[in-house]
Design a protein around this nucleic acid. Sequence first.
DNA 1: ATTTTAAACGATTACGTAATCGTTTAACTA
DNA 2: TAGTTAAACGATTACGTAATCGTTTAAAAT
Lengths: 309, 309
Amino acid sequence: MINETRFVSQELKARVYQAMRELNYHPNAIARSLRRKKTQNIGMIVPDISYPFLAEVARGVEDAGFELGYNVIVCDSDGDLEREADYIRLLQEKKVDGIVFVAAGESSSHVQTLIEQGMPVVVCDRDLPGVEVDTVIADNVGSGYQATEHLIDLGHRRIGCIAGPQVLGISNKRGNGYKRALGRYGILVREELIVRGDFRCRGGYEAMRKLLALDEPPTAVFACNDLMAVGAICTASKRRLRIPQDVAIVGCDDIALASFTNPSLSTVAQPKHEMGAMAVEMLVERIKDKSKPPTRRLLPTDLVIRDSG
Amino acid sequence: MINETRFVSQELKARVYQAMRELNYHPNAIARSLRRKKTQNIGMIVPDISYPFLAEVARGVEDAGFELGYNVIVCDSDGDLEREADYIRLLQEKKVDGIVFVAAGESSSHVQTLIEQGMPVVVCDRDLPGVEVDTVIADNVGSGYQATEHLIDLGHRRIGCIAGPQVLGISNKRGNGYKRALGRYGILVREELIVRGDFRCRGGYEAMRKLLALDEPPTAVFACNDLMAVGAICTASKRRLRIPQDVAIVGCDDIALASFTNPSLSTVAQPKHEMGAMAVEMLVERIKDKSKPPTRRLLPTDLVIRDSG
DNA sequence: ATTTTAAACGATTACGTAATCGTTTAACTA
DNA sequence: TAGTTAAACGATTACGTAATCGTTTAAAAT
């Protein structure tokens, strides 16, 4: 009938559609979901949808979902493992067909549990160790490497790094790329040149102050995301340092504002929208075939050279 | 039983919960929705979730939804009325309990239709003319007024305005506030001092170029949002103009970055998170009682004076 | 002792769809 | 002409819940 499951004569078809119009009939997706055992809904769990980077990833998820016939239930875990667990339970009860997962913490237990219960999951933007799960991620090590290599190419040897919250954690691949580039070019990694930030402007601002307070401040700085780079530029400007002559600064992400900072920000562009869209594509593949082996996609990043370094 | 609809003895209760644990039983929200005729889901229709302002509003919606027991299905209309209509149909078929609506265009026909069909709706962030609907909105006229009055207080008389896409449309309340402030202080509104932008950095950048190209450029500029203000700062900096001495600039929104531009951006802070949260609270009230008269909440804004003006 | 009342719980049914099964009619083969 | 096959469609049932109705048992009232 309506769902083209068998042959229906033209005449009856016409009469049915006519009646649908007259009665203002619209299919009830809830009843349909109950019967078909699929909802055409997917969940997206993120630490904070208002964080610009994730907002753009979410937009990619949304766009691909629309294209492929899925609605997206967005869940802000707020970096809170308990709230994350609450949302996971809710999404399971609401029978979403799959989940795009941007983890709140380093732990992989939540995803592990989901997988074991047969829920299709794609982990997005971060690696979770020890879980066999579809993953889509940007080349973060490569990003740090690209940025640092660029600064080395410019002649810098004393290069600082404004890292994320956990310098040693799995999260800081970008910091690892920084170290690898230094090593590759025979430059000693100096721990005093690596300062932690909080991935926001304020953290970059404070971190830059610490770097500039060193006896021998760096001549260039790689900030592990653009927000912190903006904070770092702010610090340098207040000190009346010229960028890039006195300190060069390179960020990471390429947020929309990066072209319009003062000076404009050199950065390593991340494929944010693409990452979200690919997560959904992989998720739909997984929904279709739950038995195939998990894949891991590493998306390349682009060095964008502007005026800050 | 589980839903506390009648008395059950302690003993049986214990046995039931025991069995639930043993069988790993979890209620099926789809079946429950079908039976109860409510889904505990709400839809949020926005032009673009990756636009920072809307991302923060969405976060407010998400937080209040979580608190009140609702999940949020986010729908990006992408400013496209057809896609908006598609999403509306989908949300209706999926039987969301209500919709938070940030309209794609100026037309109110979509909302009008929703209302007529009995769907609870709260319009957020923009007024839709001619529809009786719950609305929560920031004081945009007041914002423009506050910003402009501040510039007048600083002694400026020749004040430019970087407006949104439709200068005359209902959308540009902030521009109207600008005009009202000028009028209030007996300053003539000069059309050549009002330039349209696109609400993004690029548009602010271009608009500022136009303003500076005038025979008599303004000594101060009110940009109708912060992204355009950042673009304007960028233009002024490239021209080696000092801010605020040569041109003062005031923005609107107070995005996270506003404290870290160079110089830091004076702006009119909008209650973004609060607006989203209030939209959900109003929506839940509406869901409870569909017959009460619609209300309109006007949220106050705050002038934040920093270094740019 | 008999009736009344309430506590406690089992059993039935509707929600709106889609898959399955079964029935009618016509066409086609032997 | 009888038997076979397929086209076209109506009718039944399951999906998992919650509201309603009905039944049993015990306590309370007369």
